[in-house]
Design a protein around this nucleic acid. Sequence first.
DNA 1: GCCGTCCTCCTACCCGGGTAGGAGGCGACA
DNA 2: TGTCGCCTCCTACCCGGGTAGGAGGACGGC
Lengths: 226, 226
Amino acid sequence: MTIRVLVADDQSMVRAGFRMLLGGEEDIEVVAEASNGLEAVDKAARFDPTVVLMDIRMPELDGLEATRRILAADNAARILILTTFDLDEYVYEALRAGASGFVLKDDPPEQLLGAIRIVAGGDALLSPAITKRVIKRFTRIPQPAPPPQLEELTERELDVFRLIVRGLSNAEIGQELYISDTTVKTHITHILQKLELRDRVQAVVLAYETGLFEEDASARALRVDH
Amino acid sequence: MTIRVLVADDQSMVRAGFRMLLGGEEDIEVVAEASNGLEAVDKAARFDPTVVLMDIRMPELDGLEATRRILAADNAARILILTTFDLDEYVYEALRAGASGFVLKDDPPEQLLGAIRIVAGGDALLSPAITKRVIKRFTRIPQPAPPPQLEELTERELDVFRLIVRGLSNAEIGQELYISDTTVKTHITHILQKLELRDRVQAVVLAYETGLFEEDASARALRVDH
DNA sequence: GCCGTCCTCCTACCCGGGTAGGAGGCGACA
DNA sequence: TGTCGCCTCCTACCCGGGTAGGAGGACGGC
């Protein structure tokens, strides 16, 4: 009844870390390791793991294609994707490829262990940091386009957000809104916390990917053309 | 034959700076100042300036609307827009509003003087830092979409650029490409120089605004849906 | 009245990003 | 053969961005 794990990651340090972490658990056993995608496909077939911890970025064959091939081979293995950062386009691609879950490498250890047990049990799981964004993303196309998680942001935070997305620095935003740059910083900290983003760059990406301020753009265009 | 100038800027320091700068020129005379858009429209009508130095961001009425009103009043004045940063959507709006030129506040003084004389003479002028981007922008829609100024970037720089646009940090980009983060920094410095951008945030904005890596996105989508 | 939210501003601190400048290896090309 | 562009890596430095934490004022609901 032990959970058989295959660890696929190109960095040996990461693999060693997982051996260490999983070695202390009685119900989990690392049955094999792979340092690239091809190896992962091969060893998945040979060792019949319950769960494959799969890094996305690997030489030879990336984790996405490896996931597809393993699942196409009618393997019983569940794939748990590992990634370093969360604003990754590949997240969506990986889920469509059939991955059962998604965790960040810097999630706390207990969370990683919990994730392994959950997907081994047949359930799906996303790292909390990723969940919200994925849901918004997948529910966006079908529905007319409900304003993303933006309702949480205050009016002022939205003001700041719009200027961030236009590439302005904090000082410039302050000038534009007639507030100090320390206040701008305060707003930005709140924005990033609420949206679970790391920095303004990710905020810009999110805005464009979700079409956040499209109305603003068209409003601008209309004013121009009028 | 002197060039009559109206300075419209909400910051008195900026206005003082221009008085100082222009006071030394024999062929230029500052005939009036305005601290907001409404005042600018009013004084343009009363003082009949040759050139209006117009800040975009002003209380009461912004520089764009002020520009439209002045020109709508059938005034002979030429409008020279002042701005602090260059990746500004308003650039395009201002040009459509009828502005004769565009300069950055931190352009060298000689350049500002030159700009005033040029627009006073009836010609149009853009700050060099802005020119390339505007041209690309306005020639983008008509033509099928020639790869923007990107031909200048090397393959490796494009690799890095794509990852920047996905919100990755330098360290993450390094991991992805199997190079050190100092190398990543080197590439990014070159990218920013070539594209005349200030930081990675502006690079992301530029990429999305010009639809730079759309092929990549659709390629991803195709791989997903296949 | 009081409480909570929002907006504003501040200090202090750390870190990642960007600049400057130099250096070596490599392949293409004349 | 030399040279040039590209890629790689480095040190050293500065500065803007982000965090932590506190504080005060305005406003509205309870």
